[in-house]
Simulated scan of single mutants.
Amino acid sequence: MPFTRIAIRAGQSAAYKAALSEGIQRALVATFNVPEDDIFMVVSEHDENSFFFKPSYLGIEHSENLVLIQLTVSNTRTVEQKKALYRRIADELAESPGVRKEDVFINLVEVQTENWSFGNGIAQYAT
């Protein structure tokens, strides 16, 4: 049920974008127990006039290849699971497509389970 937004600088290949999506999905499956076929992701590309960040923040040096990842998920995971997810995403993306771990920025947005509708105007997870 995660909804993932990935923002990158324009100009990357289709294979690069697919590798980002696949790596994030592997991390979600491994750490958040997300079903393998539960994939809802969008990649947006931004030119230098619409992609802003400080090259250094909290002692972390970011390059022009910064990847901004925002995951909207149900508020059902522990802090340990969240930390494991962050590590796993950074590891997966370092492996393929070769993103520096310093360039993996992750923001997790938690919502209540009744805040999802996967179609047909039905709140499938509402109790």
Rank of each mutant, 00 (worst) to 15 (best):
A14K: 15
E80T: 03
I69F: 09
A27G: 08
F51K: 05
G59E: 02
V43C: 08
K83W: 01
S44R: 15
I24L: 13
N33G: 03
Q70R: 11
A10H: 11
I24H: 08
D91S: 01
V73S: 06
D37L: 00
K101A: 09
V111I: 13
A30D: 07
V67A: 06
I39G: 03
F32V: 04
Q25R: 07
L93T: 00
S74V: 15
T4K: 13
A15T: 11
A84S: 15
A84M: 11
K54S: 04
R26C: 03
N33I: 00
F53H: 14
T4F: 13
K17V: 10
R9Y: 08
T72W: 09
E80V: 07
R26G: 06
D91Q: 06
L66I: 03
G11D: 12
K17R: 06
N115I: 08
I39H: 07
E114D: 10
I39K: 02
E22A: 14
I8K: 10
V79I: 04
E102S: 07
G59S: 12
F53G: 12
E80N: 14
A19W: 12
N115S: 15
S63L: 04
L71V: 05
R88Q: 14
N115G: 13
A14W: 12
A7M: 04
A7R: 14
E36A: 05
R100G: 02
D103V: 05
I60T: 12
A10T: 12
V34A: 08
E110S: 10
S56E: 08
I60K: 03
F118I: 12
Q25G: 06
I60E: 00
S74T: 12
A10Y: 10
E95D: 15
G59N: 04
T78Y: 02
L20I: 09
R88M: 00
V79H: 07
F52P: 02
W116H: 15
R26F: 04
K101F: 06
I8L: 06
P35V: 01
I8P: 03
N65D: 05
V99Y: 09
N75D: 15
H46K: 14
V104L: 01
K17Q: 14
L28K: 06
G98C: 08
V42N: 07
A15S: 14
S63V: 05
V104N: 13
E36F: 00
E110M: 07
S13K: 04
F40W: 10
K101R: 04
V34K: 08
K54I: 01
